[in-house]
Write a protein that binds this DNA or RNA. Structure first.
Length: 375
RNA sequence: GGGCGGUUCGCAUAGCGGCAAUUGCAAUGGGCUGUAAACCCAUCGUCCUUCGGACUACGGGGGUUCGAGUCCCUCACCGCCCA
């Protein structure tokens, strides 16, 4: 199901082919994020035309709305959202962080220099974790919900993605060693329970390595998870700023060579390049799509915020030599207007561009591996 | 001619004796990494390198008061109503 087509001679990068029920994924690959069964502002046809083979959706969000039973009744995620390519679902593990330790603390999973490691509101307002599972307070209506490894797998089977993730706890960069260790051990137990709970053979199940910013924990986690019979592996949790490379060096030697590796939630261009060189095959990230909705375009000159006054009168396309639909047809001036006027077409055109940019970026990486050029 | 109501930092607003002065929009800068995000944060009278300080300010002029966008008088302009 995973075939390595070529190994890069200049790094640990590999060119691969991941086979799923709904088609193949050429790796290294970036999954656009479709949390609630939609890549915000785009149709599945758009996504395909831009050049993506697969997308990532979210278990927790779809469980809350519209509910996995409804998706199941409607024939599964693919049919429900009219996407015929591969789908991967995150388990809800990230929401343990984002609605828990991350909630109200103004932290992402990457620590920043100014982060203060004290006074962290550990359990957050919406999440309560115990060894058996997690109790969520819905961010939508305040209702209580319980996730366990077993229920996460069940929901993911109902949703019917091609690849599913084991239920884990994504820790915060603010967590100390002791908590990160305890959480990691719990995630390990949950990993075993997920493997046991999985009933369908048609889906691939990926395990998730945790361990936060700590070398021994990362190694221990990679060894533990890497030894389990998963179909692939995610590397999750928090990283120190600029220290992702180190974390990958710790982890990757323990992961089976012949199985795909997914670096969860990472999407800055440079991070992706570095990670590919360390042997990562799969990525997903909200970054390009969220940036787009916030009026920021990815270009090979860096990010440009189109709403700035300097673009008010500017006939040029956002990016020179870009063949995306947006750059082919619209000026910076028009896009500036759409964002200033808060017209929703702005979000859509920006998303088309940013994803087009990402798709070409990944394409180039694959080509570089294939031709053995520097990435 | 008479009667009300108004004139506040680009625009719009708040303010009813202690104010460099509310809020929204705009402007400018920053942020966004398994989506609590078409979002969030900061600045937004001038000057000084910062904590902070100095100066100039609520249509004009005068007055009351320790102290005035805030009260009084007067002038100008804008609105509505009555002649």
């Amino acid at each position: 199901m995973f075939k390595i087509l070529k190994k890069h001679s200049k790094s640990k990068a590999r060119l691969g082919l991941l086979k799923t029920r709904h088609g193949v994924i050429h790796t290294p690959f970036f999954f656009p994020v479709a949390t609630k069964a939609t890549v915000k502002s785009l149709t599945p046809e758009d996504i395909k035309n831009i050049g993506f083979e697969a997308i990532l959706a979210n278990t927790y969000h779809l469980y809350l709305q519209p509910g996995h039973q409804i998706v199941k009744k409607m024939g599964g995620l693919h049919k429900f959202m009219n996407w015929s390519g591969p789908i991967i679902t995150d388990s809800g593990g990230f929401q343990v962080f984002s609605l828990g330790a991350g909630f109200g603390n103004n932290v992402g999973k990457i620590s920043k220099d100014e982060d203060i490691k004290e006074n962290i509101n550990r359990t957050g307002k919406l999440v309560k974790i115990d060894d058996d599972g997690v109790t969520f307070t819905s961010h939508l209506d305040g209702s209580k919900h319980r996730f366990t490894p077993e229920s996460s797998i069940k929901i993911q089977e109902d949703l019917g993605a091609d690849i599913i993730f084991n239920f884990d706890e994504c820790t915060s960069p603010l967590d100390d060693y002791d908590y990160t260790k305890k959480s990691m051990e719990r995630t390990h137990q949950w990993a075993k329970r997920c493997l046991k709970a999985k009933k369908k053979n048609s889906q691939l199940l990926f395990g998730i390595v945790q361990g936060g910013l700590f070398e021994d924990l990362r190694k221990e986690s990679a060894q533990f998870i890497g030894d389990l019979p998963f179909d692939g592996f995610g590397i999750g949790g928090s990283f120190g700023k600029g220290e992702m490379k180190k974390a990958l060096d710790w982890v990757i030697p323990y992961l089976p060579e012949n199985k795909p590796r997914h670096l969860l939630g990472i999407g800055y261009l440079d991070d992706i390049k570095q990670a590919v060189k360390k042997g990562i095959d799969l990525f997903d990230c909200v970054y390009p799509t969220r940036l787009a909705r916030h009026g920021t375009f990815l270009t090979n000159q860096g990010e440009i915020s189109i709403a700035k006054g300097i673009y008010k009168i500017d006939k040029k396309p956002v990016m020179k030599n870009c063949s995306c639909y947006t750059c082919q047809n619209y000026s910076r001036s028009y896009l500036n207007h759409l964002f200033k006027a808060k017209e929703m077409l702005g979000s859509r055109l920006a998303t088309i561009h940013n994803l087009w940019f990402m798709a070409r970026f990944m394409e180039k990486i694959r080509k570089d591996i294939k031709n053995d050029r520097n990435i």
